[in-house]
């Protein structure tokens, strides 16, 4: 790791202000993603602002739903009785991710802004537009089985690794932030992450210094909820594809650089399409670049199975 200055933030607003004032600053919460990347010299912040002890870990009822503090760990959220009862899709998604040790450390805010696990992003000897804008994308034409099938661009075919965000997408969650000027924003989960386009280095719509303080869950949706993740080994592995169902909502994971709300499929279902047809509508534009071609077929089956189970 390169040397960095370390400060412990005393409030969220102060952290945001400090981050905005110091270019090259990064928030450090659980550290499970940032330190991984710093050791590999993929991230090299000049300033590390430790937000780990900010009192942002509460999980509390809010407007008929639930407000999950950004510092609540994955374990805490998954263990919360209200989450388990009212938002099982979220608990399941969290429990399908990482390992118990990682979940005891990884925070809700950090989970949202974690970076891709694309092997070419991780190998600093390879060109990657995320690491070095304009360098090119080694994953295109590469060996990846995990690359995107939806929403990719010629600049980047990586996927977003979060399971939690897929559940949040299906739940229509809203991300609450504090901005460097001390204001607050509420960002619908589907507007938090960006698709790669020409600039895969811009991963979220957060502004410089803006800090996630909470995730707001609306009142629980009516109907079945569930999260299913497919992977090469039974645990502790990135997904090949995943699907979250929450009432009428459907979201996909491991298919794009953001959690993928399957609105086309939802609309088709509303219009009376059978599950398989709805899946096909959603995946009409999907492309797998060789190694990930199978993910189209796999995702189609996942959507279909989820809808059949839901009794659509």
């Amino acid at each position: 790791m390169r040397p960095f200055s370390y400060t412990r933030a005393s409030s969220a607003a102060e952290a945001a202000r400090a981050a905005a004032e110091q270019p090259g600053a990064r928030f450090l919460a659980g550290g499970t993603n940032l330190l991984d990347l710093m050791k590999l010299e993929i991230e090299h912040p000049a300033h590390v602002i430790d937000i780990g002890r900010l009192p942002l870990g509460d999980i509390a009822p809010a407007e008929g739903g639930l407000r999950i503090g950004a510092m609540a760990t994955a374990s805490e959220v998954a263990a919360d009785a209200r989450v388990r009862r009212d938002y099982p899709v979220l608990a399941q998604a969290l429990l399908a991710s990482g390992s118990p040790q990682l979940r005891n450390k990884a925070t809700t805010g950090g989970n949202l802004i974690q970076r891709t696990r694309c092997p070419y992003f991780y190998d600093t000897a390879k060109p990657c537009n995320k690491r070095e804008p304009g360098a090119g994308c080694a994953a295109l034409g590469g060996l990846g089985r995990m690359s995107a099938i939806l929403g990719w661009s010629e600049a980047c075919i990586a996927t977003h690794p979060s399971d939690m965000a897929v559940a949040l997408s299906a739940l229509d969650a809203v991300v609450e932030t504090v901005t460097p000027d001390g204001g607050a924003r509420a960002i619908p989960i589907d507007e938090l992450h960006r698709l790669p386009g020409e600039h895969p280095e811009h991963e979220t719509n957060l502004r410089p210094g803006e800090l996630i303080t909470a995730v707001i869950l609306p009142p629980p949706p009516k109907g079945r909820q569930g999260y299913r993740k497919v992977r090469d080994r039974a645990a502790y592995a990135g997904g090949l594809a995943s699907v979250a169902v929450a009432g009428d909502a459907l979201a996909l994971g491991c298919v794009a650089l953001k959690p993928w709300r399957a609105r086309r499929a939802e609309a088709a279902l509303k219009a009376g399409a059978p599950p398989l047809a709805a899946a096909d509508v959603e995946l009409a534009d999907a492309k797998g670049h060789g190694g990930a071609d199978f993910k189209i077929h796999l995702t189609r089956r996942l959507i279909t199975a989820a809808l059949l189970e839901r009794g659509a």
Partner: peptide, 25 residues
């Protein structure tokens, strides 16, 4: 594991990419 023929390097370079069995398997 596999060699990326464009670079001559292994694609899986860590225990998150190369999947040895875990307890649950």
């Amino acid at each position: 594991n596999a060699i990326d023929p464009r670079y001559g390097s292994l694609i899986n370079q860590d225990l998150g990419g190369y999947l040895a069995p875990v307890h649950a398997d």
